[in-house]
């Protein structure tokens, strides 16, 4: 099975919980955002505190957790947005 590398970004409170703003994880591709969430929650101690179903964006577009993730994609985990 092929493996892909995904760039992961954390913002605001999630960056504080994870203790970092960026990381990279390896996932078996084809993968979904939910796979990346699981991987990140296991790999980074602080990230275990992230919700199991966070808001997420792939390559700067809002997506659902069943959205596909490919090698080289950027996955961002977004706390509840509060702009305006």
């Amino acid at each position: 099975m092929a493996t892909g590398t995904v760039q992961v970004r954390f913002f605001a409170r999630y960056a504080e919980l994870a203790g970092c703003e960026t990381t990279a994880v390896s996932v078996a591709v084809p993968a979904t955002v939910a796979d990346v969430v699981r991987q990140v929650r296991e790999a980074i101690p602080g990230a275990a505190l992230l919700p199991e179903r966070p808001l997420a964006a792939v390559n700067m577009r809002h997506v659902r957790l069943d959205a596909p993730v490919n090698d080289g994609d950027e996955v961002a985990f977004l706390p509840p947005v509060a702009g305006g």
């Binding site: 947005v81 702009g83 305006g84």
Partner: peptide, 14 residues
Amino acid sequence: VIEEAKKRLPIWKK
């Protein structure tokens, strides 16, 4: 624009 901005912009406040 304001309603969509509040729902969609990845912006956070402390």
